[in-house]
Design a protein around this nucleic acid. Sequence first.
RNA 1: CGGGAUGUGGCUCAGCUUGGUAGAGCAUCUGCUUUGGGAGCAGAGGGUCGGAGGUUCGAAUCCUCUCAUCCCGACCA
Length: 467
Amino acid sequence: MVVDLSELALKAGLADYSPVRGCMVIKPYGYAIWELIQKELDARIKECGHENAYFPLFIPESFLKKEADHIEGFAPECAVVTHAGGQKLEEPLVIRPTSETIIYHMFSKWIHSWRDLPFSVNQWANVVRWEMRTRLFLRTTEFLWQEGHTAHATHEEADGEALRMQKVYYDFMTKILALAPIVGQKSDSERFAGAEKTYSLEVLLRDGKILQAGTSHCLGQGFAKAFEIQFQTPNNELEFVHLTSWGVSTRLIGAIVLGHLDEKGLILPPAVAPIQAIIIPIYKTEEEKNKVLEECQKIASELKLAGIRHKIDSNDQTSPGAKFNEWELKGVPIRVQIGPRDVQNNQVELVRRDKCEKLKNIPRLGLPEKIQSLLTEMQDYLYERQLAWREENTYSADSIDELEQILETKGGFIKAHWNGKADTENKIKELTKATIRVKAFDEPEEKGKCLISGEESLQRVYIGRAY
RNA sequence: CGGGAUGUGGCUCAGCUUGGUAGAGCAUCUGCUUUGGGAGCAGAGGGUCGGAGGUUCGAAUCCUCUCAUCCCGACCA
């Protein structure tokens, strides 16, 4: 099984390496997936009342330094512009690694009264983080994402908003991406730089590793104080706002690929497949070709009417067999095969990418409806399969040896007791190369002893090796 | 930044140990036959061997330096 994302992403035409270290070119097929992600998620974000805006790529260096934890977390990975217009700049400009600072600078100008709250903005943008090691889609130097920022009058409201957006992500990932993330809260050491609490969504991939697919932060008042975002209460008192920020990135494409792939290549959930049905004509003679292609055109126009994203692979130079393999590699959900026999009998052959089963003698009449129902079935099936995969690969460990053994032989999520402290967390990481991924919300209470310290613990946490 | 590897037609790589003036497969082009699970045959075009310097009559091959990329660790969406 090809589980190497880089190889698969290159072969399937999602992306290519660029001349710049750690940066990728997202090719049309990969970008089309991103556009579908954007479209679906953007609608959900707007339903929450958040509007889109755009802030500058450049951030004055001094802005980043205003929040102590934030600069400490991000300084090592910032790209900084020191020269422009042929001259050394008065103040260096950081290329945004994230936009909290510049957005909150603006918030302080825009928010004055309790009547202005809650206040929110979302932006779709690129950010740059000079990571030591990069990997196509999972960790690139420049990546695309969406970052939402909200300001609230109370801590409870801000925390509620951070949780609400995490739920929006959960809903999006399960319904649209057919992924089954564990949702919960990050440990202190894995928390976002400058945040009070970080909520995350952790996906178990098919190679047994874990991917943080999205985060939502309750920032408390730290940034508000650093950027002096104050408002007057109805009682005429000055108070600092409570902020949240939340984001998902092009990493989601990596999550889709690694969450669903099989030995033949990608399997795209229908909801984000740029091509949902690929039509492959099969013929020998010129006469057959004309008849078959004519029928393909008819099918295409019916699919268009039905709102199914499709394409006819009319390439004359490759054999049908080659096309089958090509589109399987690219993960197209439904393949429509049609040859002279089918035209004759008013039927087609369909193949579902996930199960790879051939459905012969499908009546030509009502084909769009049939394809639509298969797409729906496949979307559900992929989610069920992901969920089952996660459940089958979630284990419990009650000692560090047991934890290590499961990591070595199986991978996956391992639930274990932990005392909640940083030193024991580091120790686990040191010993096993695995990290505490998340404290799940729906984890039942259970008395136990910390793997390292033996201290009392009331709840298991999820541990695993992550990307 | 530590460890490993690689750089040779568009792509994947061989050749390097033991120097003798560049090769295969895929792709491309031409022609004919093919097309229901990765087509066949015949022919053609295309490379200052990452860069610089050195050794030598002669360097893809040996030496020195340099640049770049990828993989494995510490950092991270």
